[in-house]
Design a binder for these strands. Sequence first.
DNA 1: CATGAATGAGCCTTCATTCAT
DNA 2: CATGAATGAAGGCTCATTCAT
Lengths: 211, 211, 211, 211
Amino acid sequence: MTELQHASTDCTQTRSRLLEAARVVFSQHGFQRATVREICALADANVAAVNYHFGSKEELFSQALNFNRLKALQAASIDPDINPEARLRLFVRDFMLILLDEQHASSQCRMMARELADPTPVLDKIVHEAIAPLHAFVGRLLGQIVIAPIEEATLKRYVYSLFGQCLFYRNSHPVLQRLNPDLSYDIAQIEAIAQHISDFTLAALNAKIPD
Amino acid sequence: MTELQHASTDCTQTRSRLLEAARVVFSQHGFQRATVREICALADANVAAVNYHFGSKEELFSQALNFNRLKALQAASIDPDINPEARLRLFVRDFMLILLDEQHASSQCRMMARELADPTPVLDKIVHEAIAPLHAFVGRLLGQIVIAPIEEATLKRYVYSLFGQCLFYRNSHPVLQRLNPDLSYDIAQIEAIAQHISDFTLAALNAKIPD
Amino acid sequence: MTELQHASTDCTQTRSRLLEAARVVFSQHGFQRATVREICALADANVAAVNYHFGSKEELFSQALNFNRLKALQAASIDPDINPEARLRLFVRDFMLILLDEQHASSQCRMMARELADPTPVLDKIVHEAIAPLHAFVGRLLGQIVIAPIEEATLKRYVYSLFGQCLFYRNSHPVLQRLNPDLSYDIAQIEAIAQHISDFTLAALNAKIPD
Amino acid sequence: MTELQHASTDCTQTRSRLLEAARVVFSQHGFQRATVREICALADANVAAVNYHFGSKEELFSQALNFNRLKALQAASIDPDINPEARLRLFVRDFMLILLDEQHASSQCRMMARELADPTPVLDKIVHEAIAPLHAFVGRLLGQIVIAPIEEATLKRYVYSLFGQCLFYRNSHPVLQRLNPDLSYDIAQIEAIAQHISDFTLAALNAKIPD
DNA sequence: CATGAATGAGCCTTCATTCAT
DNA sequence: CATGAATGAAGGCTCATTCAT
């Protein structure tokens, strides 16, 4: 519960603590189930603090979302000196690290993943600011790998196949935990998963070329 | 437990109507957002009916789940006269129809999909009765396609890659709707999606063989 | 506080008790200051009872208004066998009894008086259903007294002068109480006030005739 | 108590701006509905300013009341060279201008009018400092018009009849607005109203003499 | 067997006030 | 002298559940 309390950020500021606590609680319970009371308790703040600083639970949710890491992700995989396949492997690895690494501040991404299953008005913002650019970026990347000209619709399905594989590990995490009770993601395992997804995807893409 | 006791009785029975209404409402709003009042209103029953017949909202949810269609799915794809690849294509097609076809009574499966993102104690039942067998089934099927002996862990990842691709279209439906505002699934489109997933997966599996 | 509890109405019904309590509390504190909690406490009901029975505080307020007495008032003063001046005296007397008699169920009228100073959306209903007809009625009555033809606007001002005098005793009651600390309205006093208002008004109206 | 201490200082002083803003907001919304936040926002001051300068919302309200205009009113109508009836007409005219003229700084009086319907402890001050003297003044004035000796109680009722007519236009303003949607008070209309009230009252008073 | 009525815990939010600087 | 930040009490309302019939 107090995992992020007094963490690296400037915790003397109630506002920052609220944002941090919100990410934890929202990513655990989703927007609906999360209560401002729990967030405030975790942030060691008064119940009224959320409304004072953000005006509403929804605005807090919206501001707790932080797409910086996702944007940095794209920047890192954009180096033109690396060939497209290697860039894809880099991207998938970083993406999975963000999605699965419980230790780091990836709760924003988990919040997003939750949001997908239980949309609130904030989803529009998420899609517009984070997901659409990400899909566009991955679309360009895959387009460079599949040299043969392909239809836009087909390219989209490749993108979906890639994201589907990646997101599965997050979205179906509760299921996987029950199927494999001793499941836990350390960095080595995350990298192995990322490598599998990259292998699988590249194999499918390359196999398509002769067609 | 008693879910099939009344299966044969007239659907005018309150109990049956509640189950049917529950499937509709739960699959629309998820467990949390769905309200007992809405279910009862749709079933034309009293607010107290849910607790009277099922004891709790959660138990209603649990009993509203119905895995028959998923079980039938496996049965259909098990014909030994068909080669494994064709069986996989059949399975994916039927699975996607269940997941995406809004016209038919596949709301149970949509309920399950929602549940994954918002686990309740009922998830244990779902995993045990429906998902675990399904994963095992698909695991055996993929194992027949990848002739070369592979590790159990690797096979699992193949299964995850397949389900990840399939579930993406349901889990990320709100996102896809926003990315493609005129999105809608008719049977032709569902079959095209299924074919893509099958192609993609088989290409990846076959490419692996030389390794 | 419990002045009306278990009064004459069917108090076994929570709904009725809520309406009764609402009239008491609303007329004491006005719409804003009145709290559903206090109303429910007075009605010996649960806090949720208001929302269960009426949906909202405002709808409770709206339904607590009851114009029957005002309507009866007009009916009583409409007897054609009595001359207009006597009918006016009757009307003023009955009106003042409703306005000032604390013993009887005139809290609706006090509620209305409060509403005037602190309008809520419900005021539209009050004006339309109760006040407009009342003004029209009194307008006709005064029109019969002032035989000479007068303009519509002038007639309205007569109506306002009459109602102004009557309502003063209710609206300015807190002031009058402080000016005359031992103020209290028994029936004799109310009748004396009514007689003064009638005298004053009729004198003014009659004095006008020669003009 | 200290209300005039800063009277001479520049109105840019926070304190003065708060008083001015308070008059505007209180007269618009009444004591209850007015919020400290709105007053501070209008005065371009901090939320804490009210409590800092005045200790409480109620004390701000109390100090925002300013009876100078009412006192000036009496002074103006006290000229012994004018006959009592004319003085009454002057008084009523000026009083109605204060009550109804939205353009001028008569918000204090509107504040008082609101207060009557929603008493706070401040009402004691209002009654003692403003209303009681006003009633006394009008009582003397009417006493001079009704030459015949009358009882104190009767004189009081005349005063009430006069004030009732005047205040009606303010207290029932929300109602009148709804009855006459295109209602608005310009100076000509206010003077017409004042004339009607004076005519009506004087007619009644004079008619009484023969009694 | 079923229900209309009622409940109580909990939700988000508002607001006058206080605190630390 | 003044303020931005924070507080706690209270508000209306929702909802799954229970009760009495």
